[in-house]
Computed example of a mutant assay.
Amino acid sequence: MLPIPIDADGRFAGYASVFDRLDESGDRVLPGAFAKSLARRGAGRLRMLFQHDPKEPIGVWERVAEDGFGLWAEGRLIPGVGRADGLRRLIESRAVDGLSIGFRTVRASREAGGRRRRLSEIDLWEISVVTFPMLAEARIAPRPDAGAKRSLRAAIDMLRT
């Protein structure tokens, strides 16, 4: 059985972005793209929203960092916030598990053909819990160890081919 993705205090974690993966809008985030923004803002100044709605803050991000796989985020839903209380139950039951980033593009280049972008610097504003993430791999999940990350990447690559 899979571990419950949220604890009794409303803490959860997952990858808000995965490097070198094409999202539904044609963007590909490169490693290091968040570095300057995270150094400037840190986790405390990033907002946790529901469905990117600025009228729906639901919690706080306690740790956000790049690793070799993507943008890892750890946060906590705020008890007593109606949307957050309901969302806690939805995450616990795995009915909602998507993560998505809200950002401004600072530096990007176009891939061959001109439609797809390679994002090399991003000004990150917020990370939302969403029903349908633009990047399929951006999900709430237990943090995998290095071996599990390689296995996950291999499985994702296999499914894509």
Rank of each mutant, 00 (worst) to 15 (best):
E56F: 02
P57D: 02
P57S: 02
P57V: 02
P57K: 00
P57F: 00
I58T: 07
G59H: 08
G59I: 10
G59N: 04
V60D: 14
V60M: 11
V60G: 12
V60N: 13
W61V: 07
W61D: 07
W61R: 03
E62Q: 14
E62H: 13
R63S: 14
R63V: 05
R63K: 15
R63N: 13
R63I: 08
R63A: 15
R63G: 08
V64C: 14
V64S: 11
V64R: 06
V64A: 14
A65V: 11
A65E: 11
A65T: 04
A65N: 10
A65G: 10
A65C: 12
E66S: 13
E66D: 10
D67H: 08
D67Y: 12
D67W: 13
D67L: 15
D67M: 15
D67Q: 07
D67C: 14
D67A: 14
G68E: 13
G68P: 06
F69V: 15
F69Y: 13
F69C: 12
F69Q: 07
F69N: 00
G70V: 10
G70C: 09
L71K: 00
L71M: 09
L71T: 00
L71Y: 02
W72L: 15
W72T: 11
A73W: 02
A73M: 14
A73T: 11
E74P: 05
E74H: 09
E74D: 07
E74T: 05
G75W: 00
G75E: 07
G75R: 00
R76S: 08
R76W: 03
R76K: 15
L77C: 06
L77R: 00
I78R: 07
I78D: 05
I78G: 01
P79Q: 07
P79S: 11
G80Q: 09
G80P: 07
G80L: 06
V81S: 05
V81W: 09
G82K: 13
G82D: 14
R83D: 00
R83V: 00
R83E: 01
R83S: 05
A84K: 02
A84W: 03
D85A: 12
D85N: 12
D85W: 03
G86K: 08
